[in-house]
Design a protein around this nucleic acid. Structure first.
Length: 840
RNA sequence: GCGGACGUGGCGGAAUGGUAGACGCUGGAGACUUAAAAUCUUCUGCCCCUAGAGGCGUGCGGGUUCGAGUCCCGCCGUCCGCACCA
């Protein structure tokens, strides 16, 4: 035993002991209450970064805390192992994606183990292995049989040089991020999941997620984007009444129907395309309208373009009123019906369009019935009173809306409808490194699901990346199969699944992993839903929405009895660091920067000045990352863990700093010195005992609320109270309890100290201490004395002092007398044991 | 444009409407030491030649209250999400 805690020895020792004892293996058959703690599993990009360390430390503290509280805890880890970086590495480094990925997993697993996380490694999984994605294929077939999978033509970003599909983020200034070639829009037949079937349910379910951040719920709500309105038909002028619907539109503002001055259709609308076939000038306009990217920035600056088709439609409420039909670039084909009617006076976008093309702007909503003739200087999208609207005049906007819908439904030209912004989930990726979609295309039978007994459809590993495009497409044998239905020669589907599919059910597979099926329902339901899910807010929408959808889909087909996969969600902040920039604009690594004698920052190599940049999220491009590994070497796992928990509230960003990690390391040594204090003292220390019990309560409450910075502060207070206390039996007990309280955060230190103090068993198996409620308060209290709400003095008194006595004591204080100057107070307010406020 | 969050010392941050600044970092002074590291003690919001039984202080301006960092109204600023969604 030395007077310094040596993490280099202790960390390994206890990691080995926990592994040997299988301390963190979750027993599905345990009689204890269950607790499922999960952090978002990592993409195996190469090495663990500080963001992982922070995320997993938080989850680990909670998992260890729950275990000490007597729960059977499931705290697993795995790898979100499919995805593009592996293919990029394959092309750049000539290494197979599988090799690259599996090496990264091995490295990162070892790194995680060095930090001493209480993980059940027996349940580890990687989504790139057939024993995971094979089960995913079977679930895909289940959804297909249930009618939740369909094929649709859809536009993609196509890189003509790399011959590959690009995600929106890979299109930069309209060019492929790798090839630099202008990106084309190309229509491909792709696989979709019917998430829109669940739009209403996903929206309603948000109401039950009271342990989710409001922010995330709101983001999902906006993403689903429900709106109520009227869907109705315009008939083209010159066609017979009662015929088919010519142009169908959707509007959330039926009350403005008399303000319509044009109808606009999307460049992709069938009517436009039909016209284009006959009139070259239409085709030319459509081509121009479609050019330009789909990114937000481009759309923002895009000028509104319109083309008057010369066609006219009849106003549904006045057959003598004709509206021109325009093709407009701002009308989206995949929202609503791909067509709308424009009301320039009350829609910003329609206003801009009408100004440009000199279309009528007619006020139909005003603040009051008298405002009918007020000029419209800018779009007024708000609600009000209907004007210039015939039978609607005088009605409030919502009444007018209801009236128009009523009439439309009665007359049969339209109906009230709910629209969602949410689109169906396109899961096809023309990529190699992903789960093969288990389908065979047969000329006779169409797309046919691969029979269950032929699963998994294993991704072939004998592929090359020498040529551009998806290597699966040119595989000599893999694509050639017989149709499972008719036996004729057929071709295997070469699209793979979006990796978000892999992460949509991994938490179920963690809970139950039989060999012959994706999961056992009864076993999975013992653990699910996940009690606490922790991850970055960047997954607030897509991953969390897809997982909620997938769980609901499984529920609908009877595979599982829950709809919501994650009961509690916590989104932690990022780990940030200062950035450094050389005078010629290069980003510098922190270790390339030194502090000169005059205190200025200089570049180590050249001695030239360095500019201190903003504090930003650690990223390779800004070169402000700090690799956890050397830090672990230097300070040990517990100091790193402790720093991740202290300083910032978990939901906010944490700035990495040298002084911060050193402070944490100092605390580790402080606790160790306390642990070395001789035991077996006599005597009682009532004040310390109260502080101890207050700390037990405060730390427990803070961890429960995931406020780790507060639990750290409470432990610092306790440690310094113990340091200041004289030896006593109480102090011995306080030291023992301190070890229990730090055990979730600094487990190696806690174990080492536990053993050093001669305690039996591992602290990992110990129980969380209880506190005595009666000991949480002091006998003596400090009472604030205010005059007119301003603090003037304080006084010490026994707890439970009566109102009357408090008032008398306060009025007798010299400072109070001086302030009052002999006058009588008008009123005295007493909050027992807290304060006396004298109103003069 | 729409939606949301947040503004507290030199810094990160604490504060059921009741003593603002817990705890940590940084910095000052001191102790121990031949010296350094480590450790310990102590001070550390601002103002004032009046150092006090003093004044001012939680982005700014109002309001409610005996009492406001906290509640209400209006601004300003920063950050985040969505974005031609009919």
């Amino acid at each position: 035993m030395t007077d310094r805690f040596d993490p280099a020895v202790a960390d390994r020792r206890w990691q080995k002991r926990w592994a040997e004892a299988r301390s963190f293996q979750a027993d599905s058959n345990s009689a204890k209450p269950k607790s499922y703690v999960l952090e978002m599993f990592p993409y195996p990009s190469g090495r663990i970064h500080m963001g992982h360390v922070r995320n997993y430390t938080m989850g680990d503290v909670l998992a260890r805390f729950r275990r000490m509280q007597g729960y059977e805890v499931l705290h697993p880890m795995g790898w979100d192992a499919f995805g593009m970086p592996a293919e990029n590495a394959a092309m750049e480094k000539k290494v197979h994606p599988g090799t690259w990925t599996r090496q990264n997993i091995a490295t990162m697993r070892e790194q995680l183990q060095r930090i001493g996380f209480a993980l059940d490694w027996s349940r580890e999984l990687a989504t790139c292995e057939p024993n995971y994605y094979g089960h995913e294929q079977s679930l895909f077939l289940d959804l297909m049989e249930a009618g939740l999978v369909f094929r649709k033509e859809s536009e993609v970003n196509w890189d003509p040089v790399d011959m590959t599909v690009l995600a929106n983020e890979q299109v930069i200034d309209g060019k492929g991020w790798r090839s630099g070639a202008p990106v084309e829009r190309k229509k491909l037949s792709q696989w979709f999941l019917k998430i829109t079937d669940f739009a209403e349910d996903l929206l309603e379910g948000l109401g039950t997620l009271d342990q989710w951040p409001d922010k995330v719920r709101l983001m999902q709500q906006n993403w689903i984007g429900k709106s109520r309105g009227l869907q109705f038909c315009f008939r083209l002028a010159g066609t017979a009444p009662g015929g088919a619907c010519d142009i169908e539109v959707f509007t959330t503002r039926p009350d403005t129907i008399f303000g319509a001055s044009f109808v606009a259709i999307s460049p992709s609308h069938p009517i436009g395309e039909a016209l284009a076939a006959e009139r070259p000038e239409v085709a030319e306009f459509i081509a121009r309208a479609r050019a330009g990217g789909t990114s937000a920035a481009e759309i923002e600056t895009a000028e509104k373009l319109g083309f008057d088709t010369g066609l006219e439609v009849l106003h549904p409420l006045d057959p003598d009123w004709r509206l021109p039909v325009w093709i407009a670039n701002f009308v989206l084909m995949d929202y609503g019906t791909g067509a709308l009617f424009g009301v320039p006076a009350h829609d910003v976008r329609d206003f801009e369009f009408a100004k440009k093309y000199h279309l009528p702007i007619r006020r139909v909503v005003a603040d009051s019935p008298r405002g009918a003739d007020e000029p419209v200087v800018e779009a007024e999208p708000g609600a009000g009173i209907a004007v210039n609207s015939r039978f609607l005049d005088g009605l409030a906007s919502d009444q007018a809306t209801a009236e128009v819908i009523k009439r439309a439904e009665a007359a049969g030209w339209g109906e009230g409808k709910t629209q969602y912004r949410l689109r169906d989930w396109g899961v096809s990726r023309q990529r190699y490194w992903g789960t093969p979609i288990p389908v065979v295309h047969c000329e006779e039978c169409g797309p046919v699901g691969v029979p269950r007994d032929q699963l998994p459809v294993v991704l072939p590993e004998d592929v090359s990346f020498e040529l551009p495009g998806n290597p699966l497409d040119r595989h000599p044998t893999w694509t050639t199969v017989d149709c499972p239905k008719c036996g004729a020669a057929a071709r295997r589907e070469t699209d793979t699944l979006d990796t978000f599919v892999d992460s949509s059910w991994y938490f179920i597979r963690f809970a139950s992993q039989p060999d012959n099926r994706p999961f056992d329902r009864a076993e999975a339901e013992k653990w699910l839903p996940v009690g606490q899910y922790i991850g970055g807010v960047e997954h607030a929408i897509l991953h969390l929405l897809y997982a909620r959808f997938w769980t609901r889909a499984l529920e609908r087909i009877g595979k599982i009895g829950i709809k919501e996969p994650f009961k509690g969600l916590f989104t932690q902040g990022m780990v940030t660091h200062e950035t450094y920039e050389s005078l010629d604009g290069r980003w510098l690594n922190p270790d390339e920067v030194a502090v000169a004698e005059n205190g200025a920052l200089v570049e180590r190599a050249t001695g030239t000045a360095v500019r201190l940049g903003r504090v930003e999220k650690m990223s390779k491009s800004k070169k402000n990352t700090v690799d956890p590994e050397p830090i672990l070497d230097r300070y040990g796992a517990d100091a790193v863990r402790w720093f991740m928990l202290s300083d910032s509230p978990p939901e906010r960003d944490l700035e990495w700093s040298e002084s911060g990690i050193e402070g944490a390391a100092r605390f580790v040594q402080r606790v160790w010195r306390l642990a070395l204090a001789p035991k077996g003292n006599d005597g009682h220390d009532a004040a310390l005992l109260r502080k101890l019990h207050r700390a037990i309560a405060a730390v427990g409450e803070a961890i429960e609320g995931l406020q780790f910075n507060k639990s750290v502060a409470a432990l610092y207070e306790l440690a310094s109270a113990i340091e200041k206390a004289k030896p006593s039996a109480t102090r011995d007990e306080a030291i023992r309890t301190l070890l229990l309280l730090i055990a979730p955060g600094a487990p190696h230190l806690a174990e080492e100290a536990w053993a050093a103090r001669g305690e039996t068993g591992m602290i990992a198996d110990a129980s969380w201490p209880a506190f005595e409620p009666g000991l949480l308060v002091d006998d003596e209290v400090t009472i604030a004395v205010q005059i007119n709400g301003k603090l003037r003095d304080t006084m010490t008194a026994a707890r439970g002092l009566s109102r009357e006595d408090a008032e008398v004591l306060a009025l007798a204080l010299p400072k109070v007398q001086a302030q009052l100057g002999g006058g009588t107070p008008r009123k005295v307010i007493v909050v027992p044991d807290r304060l006396v406020n004298i109103v003069a």
